[in-house]
């Protein structure tokens, strides 16, 4: 009688024991709040997007920001990188960008008469891949290999990337000239996608006020160090997703698949990412367990960009409808 993991009750004792020496959820929430506050010194409003981006970092995944130019995508990525104190590189994607421009290449050192590897911009903690849909598919796949494998292979040598490795890719959804839209399989590699959205009037005024005497980004300092980020990522892995949550996730994916207007169904990886993102989200509230609320909240950012809709259906609307109608698993398990 095969019982899958979802049916098996958690070993709560083991969970509790493993928590002892590590980062407590309360402390994690404190660190994250500090980072968020720091980012908000630069980014006005946009609490949700900021938190989503940070959640992507904590979940150990990569984030796709989609919006019009000039909405603060790059600003957000840079503020995030500065706040966590890691190395930051920016890749401006263009159609003539080559894979080696990202990964780096070997250059002949004439003094030593040897080939010397010059690391590309990918060798950083936080990488901003700006306008990723402008790069050619070949370059995109090099970037995405790095994102997926946490390693780069250049001229036969595999070089691991340093932890944390976090890619924030942006793409402009309205421009189609000279773009190579990301294939679905590659979109699937981003743990979540977010839209910046237009600022409100008050936010716009505030942005202008802050820019009056220069760039606030210049004054930004790091509030946590890279070790803290690694610790946060570890803490995220220890957040408990109860059997009920797993049941709920499976039911949610099933419900999305069952929708007649969905052309490309939700992959298993999307379920894994949704669980991981929900774990990260729980840390923001100082919890060491996932609530169905987290899953509900993250369903659109995690799932929307992966799903292909039939006709002109709106993915976000469909997902919201599924989430509001799908019953959560019964509270009584016994």
């Amino acid at each position: 009688m095969g019982r899958n993991r979802a049916d098996r009750p958690l070993d709560w004792g083991l969970v509790a024991a493993s928590q002892e020496p590590s980062l407590q959820p309360r402390r994690a929430a404190e660190l994250l709040e500090r980072v968020e506050k720091n980012i908000h010194r630069v980014i006005v409003g946009k609490d949700r997007v900021v938190r989503l981006a940070l959640a992507g970092l904590v979940a150990g995944g990569h984030v796709l920001l989609q919006d019009l130019p000039g909405t603060g995508k790059t600003m957000l990525a840079r503020a995030l990188a500065t706040s966590v104190g890691g190395t930051f590189r920016r890749i401006q994607c263009t159609p003539d960008l080559l894979p080696s421009d990202i990964t780096g290449s070997s250059v002949f050192n004439q003094k030593d008469l040897t080939f010397e590897f010059i690391p590309g911009p990918i060798f950083a903690n936080i990488v901003l891949a700006d306008e990723v849909n402008r790069a050619t598919p070949r370059t995109q796949s090099a970037l995405l290999e790095a994102m997926g494998e946490q390693q780069v292979t250049v001229e036969g040598t595999t070089r691991p990337l340093e932890r944390p490795f976090f890619v924030v890719a942006t793409q402009n959804p309205t421009e189609f000239h000279g773009t190579y839209p990301l294939p679905e399989s590659q979109l699937d590699r981003f743990v979540l996608a977010a839209e910046m959205g237009p600022p409100t009037d008050a936010e716009a005024l505030e942005v202008l006020a802050r820019r009056e005497h220069g760039d606030p980004l210049a004054d930004l300092a790091s509030v946590v160090d890279i070790a803290d980020v690694i610790e946060l990522q570890d803490a995220c892995l220890r957040v408990v997703a109860a059997p009920a949550i797993r049941t709920y996730l499976v039911a949610l994916l099933q419900a999305v698949r069952a929708r007649p207007d969905v052309l490309l169904p939700a992959s298993m990886r999307s379920g894994v990412y949704l669980q991981r993102a929900a774990q990260a989200w729980a840390l923001f509230e100082g919890r060491d367990f996932v609530l169905p609320d987290d899953v509900k909240l993250l369903a659109v950012p995690v799932l929307a960009h992966r799903l292909g809709m039939r006709g002109r259906g709106r993915v976000a609307e469909m997902l919201n409808e599924v989430v509001t109608t799908l019953p959560i698993p019964p509270l009584r398990q016994h």
Binding site: P9, L10, W12, V15, V240, A242, A244, I245, R287, D288, F289, V290, L291, P292, L331, Q333
Partner: peptide, 10 residues
């Protein structure tokens, strides 16, 4: 308490 019980087993 319900959340902690159902989703954290405490």
């Amino acid at each position: 308490a319900v959340n902690e019980g159902v989703y954290a087993g405490r």
